[in-house]
Design a binder for these strands. Sequence first.
DNA 1: GCCAACGTTGGC
DNA 2: GCCAACGTTGGC
Length: 142
Amino acid sequence: MPSPLSHWLLKTEPSTYSFCQLVRDKKTNWNGVRNFQARNFIKQMKPRDPALIYHSGEDKAVVGLAQVVSTPYKDLDPEGGEWYQVDLIPMAPFQKFVELKLIKSLHSFKDLILVKQSRLSVMPVSKIHFDLLVKMGKTSSS
DNA sequence: GCCAACGTTGGC
DNA sequence: GCCAACGTTGGC
């Protein structure tokens, strides 16, 4: 039995929903994911799992640290389908955004899904990669 | 079940 | 603005 996945990276378009907004909201339901692969990862999330927040578009950088605080629950869609969401709280903003450009330039990140599969919006991250990204982001909690 | 056409995401 | 990488849809 493989150990459960526990570290995540969530992608968002900052003009749609940003990490700043999550900080203001104090808590949000991470909904609207309509991709099967991403959905299957959401279903594996557990309360207390840490998650990195990545901004696509303008920033193209990992910008903050958050935490899953619910088990996955239904995200109802009038179009139908079995979709899921989790609740998320902000933990710490990155003092230094970790840009995709930099991540791509480092050989140690060559297996990061963010690099290999640019369209996936919810993905697991190895603990090694996760800790490294947090360190590079210089959050106060690291 | 295959594949062409089309739509979307997101990096460049 | 363009294009690569996917995902979806629909004709056959």
